Simulated assay, not measured.
Amino acid sequence: MELPAAFEKRMQDMLGAEYTAFRASYNEPHKRGIRLNTVKCTKEQLERVLPFTLVQTPFSPLSFYAPTDTKMAALPLYHAGAFYSQEPSASSAVTLLAPEPGDKVLDLCAAPGGKSTQIAALTGDTGLLWSNEVVRNRAAILSSNLERMGVRNTVVSSVYPEMLAEKLGGYFDKVLVDAPCSGEGMFRRDPVAVQEWSPEHVETCAVRQLAILSSAAQCVREGGILVYSTCTFSTEENEGVVQKFLE
């Protein structure tokens, strides 16, 4: 597939000798996955009715590979909320967050709800899950997915992160910031992400991410856990944001 020349140059500089293998990966189909929703069923129950075998991914004990040609929306258990359609690696951020039963957890950039519903499964739908999405129509999608997955101990909000920092400073045991980004990791399955990419877009995203991360840090209690993640490769949006936050 064709990629922006500036992006390719960045990745060559970053990866060196590994760039050839990285570039070749774009000729391979992206892997699909599902995540078990233990709020509604067990792995054994899901295995009995799915038309494919569950093969666990290394990213989460709840995450499994799925055939690329599977039409998830055609499966009744999808609509029943027994599983969530999610790329395998996307589950790793919540695995690192390690929410436990009784935790008060904030998912600050939560739509469409993949990570929020994973948090709910790991807490057993106990404690409190606060799922926020600043874009109102995306917050509606988030709310719909939480309802489909049977999540009850949750609050859905659509406010700017600084408002939560002001009103709920130090309240949460764990906070997840899966920040909106330039989406470089989505290029294989999202042509729009390729079209929208530019060095300027990367820089704009980094400014916004730093502001979000700063608000998130105010929401977590002393001794709590804050996880920052993106689905992009750029150092500006990852190491660069974290470094500026720590300065």
Rank of each mutant, 00 (worst) to 15 (best):
E8C: 14
A206H: 02
D13L: 14
E166I: 10
T57G: 06
E87M: 08
G127K: 01
A179P: 10
L3A: 08
R189T: 07
R10M: 15
S144R: 15
E162I: 12
M14P: 08
N132M: 07
Y26W: 15
A140P: 04
S143C: 12
E237N: 07
L108I: 03
V155R: 11
A24I: 12
Q56Y: 06
A17H: 09
P199G: 06
Y171C: 07
G33L: 00
S215F: 06
D190V: 00
S91W: 10
M11I: 14
R10N: 12
L54D: 08
F245K: 08
V192T: 14
L168N: 11
M11G: 05
A140S: 12
A193V: 03
L146Q: 07
A93S: 13
V156P: 04
D69F: 08
L106D: 01
Y26V: 06
L96Y: 10
I119D: 03
F172H: 02
F187S: 05
A90S: 15
D13M: 14
R10E: 15
T95M: 15
A120T: 06
Q86R: 11
K174M: 12
V55I: 14
S89M: 05
A193H: 05
G124D: 09
L226Y: 03
D13A: 14
E100Y: 08
I225L: 14
H79C: 10
S214M: 13
E184Y: 01
M1D: 12
Q118K: 11
L46N: 03
V135R: 15
E184P: 09
Y65I: 03
F245D: 04
V49I: 12
V177C: 02
L96E: 14
E47T: 05
T57S: 09
K31F: 10
A179F: 05
S92Q: 15
L128G: 07
S182G: 05
P199L: 05
S116R: 04
P29E: 05
S60I: 02
I225V: 15
V241A: 06
L128K: 07
E196D: 12
E239T: 11
Q209G: 00
S214A: 15
